[in-house]
Design a protein around this nucleic acid. Structure first.
Lengths: 222, 222
DNA sequence: TACAAAAAGTGCGCGCACGCAAGTTTGCGT
DNA sequence: ACGCAAACTTGCGTGCGCGCACTTTTTGTA
């Protein structure tokens, strides 16, 4: 179904991409991220430095990709996998939490490295933006083609919420300002942060779903 | 109130920033964006190239800033200016539409240039992300300090929605896929696109506002 | 099987972004 | 009025991102 092109060409491309991101992470762990030149990564993966840049547009992106991998498409697939009867908001939230709790992603060492270095933290958080397009398709699948525009906005919003949760999880952009009265929990568990962030969007997802359902009963309406 | 630091120092900084962005736009219009070196911009603004990079982290950013300017803080101020009785969703949507319809921003020539070159389009669309932080403060102001986390998610979502609207307005990232059955309006007017995109988030804003109101009546509840 | 079109890889070169370690200006307390 | 500390500017050097033109590999077709 989602096979796309399955030729030798595509196979090699994926292999190269994987070789690059794994080399990037391995070298970063071995020597520390600041002692890894792009040439080293390309060398280790057996391609030219120029080719490296055809796959990743920043060194941080390559390192982070080793841990982020194909999460985007997995999220979309996970949503599509939920039975149609499930509330859209639940399908989205559960799918995301599920994919961000994948034991594979918990490469202890790697995450420690990433959450330590500011540049990597930023790249890691920004990587969440990649779920937007797959998410759009997944949500549009539920809303019907009439709701494509709405789906795009909702997907972008969900991605933004995930970004916020991740940012908070890794310690935030800067030190939190000293709040006067309230006690501020430093970080918390990632699933909790994700659910909390996404909860704010549930009403919007519900409304879109309701609208789509009524449109199906009365196609003449806008 | 929102004065911040108003010393000579800050004054000079703003002057430099303005000189840089205006020089960037002027030169880009005169020679075409590809024939403008960073050194030229710095020269024209009377600072060193290195200083230029303390203000803008990409050439595109500087050019786009001339048209984007201080829109971020204006949006926040516009929201704060609405009377407290107004529905939050309306305050946000109206403030944003108002600020993105500022006649100043319609520097015909500049917008033509920006919407033409892909690199500039991207920078222009991405510039919308800058409204997130001011928006967070503005929304948090309405929701009360208990809703700060929610405010951040909502602000990020609103910014994302604006991004989507702008992206559509400037012609989209790539050519739209040929939809089978439906007629697709190419672009439409910016205010309409903004309202359409933000409409999907209205239910979330409403829900947050209701929650905040009930929390005010019953502070013991979470 | 042979071949032409498409796609991916590669070498080169140019600006650019940014860390670092000075030098310079502004702000503030005494 | 003075002087110190913090903020801003600047020159230098390094590695990187990417456009361009060219070679090599893969794919679809005759």
């Amino acid at each position: 179904m989602t096979a796309g092109r399955t030729g030798l060409r595509e196979q090699k491309k994926q292999a190269t991409r994987q070789a690059l991101r794994e080399a990037a992470l391995r070298l970063a762990l071995e020597r520390g991220p600041d002692n890894v030149r792009v040439d080293d990564i390309a060398d280790a993966a057996g391609v030219s430095p120029r080719t490296y840049n055809n796959y990743f547009s920043s060194r941080e992106q390559a390192i982070v990709a080793a841990v982020t991998a194909e999460r985007e498409s997995r999220v979309a697939a996970a949503i599509a996998a939920r039975p149609d009867g499930v509330r859209l908001a639940d399908a989205v939230v559960d799918a995301i939490v599920e994919q961000y709790t994948d034991p594979d992603a918990q490469d202890g060492d790697a995450l420690l490295l990433i959450t330590t270095r500011p540049a990597l933290r930023e790249a890691f958080v920004d990587a969440a933006a990649a779920i937007e397009h797959p998410l759009t398709d997944a949500i549009a699948g539920r809303l019907g083609d009439a709701g494509r525009d709405t789906a795009r906005v909702l997907a972008a919003s969900v991605a933004a919420a995930v970004r916020v949760a991740l940012d908070r999880w890794v310690g935030g952009t800067a030190a939190a300002p000293p709040v006067a009265g309230g006690l501020v929990v430093p970080s918390g568990s990632l699933p909790d942060l994700l659910r909390a962030a996404l909860a704010a969007l549930a009403p919007a997802l519900d409304a879109a779903e309701r609208r789509a359902a009524s449109a199906r009963h009365d196609p003449g309406r806008i």
